[in-house]
Amino acid sequence: MTSFTLRGHAGIGPKVTGTALVAADNFSARYDLDRIKGIFVRPQHKLVGQSYVGRVLVLNVAKGGVATAWMLHEMAARAMAPLALLLNFANPIMAQGAALADLPFMDRFEGDVTELLRTGDGVTVDPAAGLLTVTRD
């Protein structure tokens, strides 16, 4: 087992530990998800068919419109949200949505977070410190 840390910009929400789900693709709750079933459904998305519920979801940039700002809150209220969200670059909508939902959220890492993390990694997300601690089998 190896362990390492990654620095990012200070983020939003509480410290959590979970398992990463990673893709070099982008994110919008409205465009990409079936929020009732908790899976990616946009046919072109690299995670199509996969469940994001309870995972540390790691993607490239925020895409789409403004709806995600309400939707993360709605998903969290039904316990159907990701555990945390990590992006290379946020847009305001993701930050606003994470703040409302109290969802752990970080961006602006020291490298491409979709390459530095792999699906299945154990990740502790500490938004206040701007720090990820990663364990890999």
Partner: peptide
């Protein structure tokens, strides 16, 4: 609404980020 923001910002020269519902 992203379409409303981009028109107001670009065509009319007003200043706004994408502000989701809560913000």
């Amino acid at each position: 609404d992203t379409g409303s923001v981009i028109y107001a910002s670009s065509v009319l020269g007003a200043r706004s980020n994408f502000e989701g519902g809560p913000s």
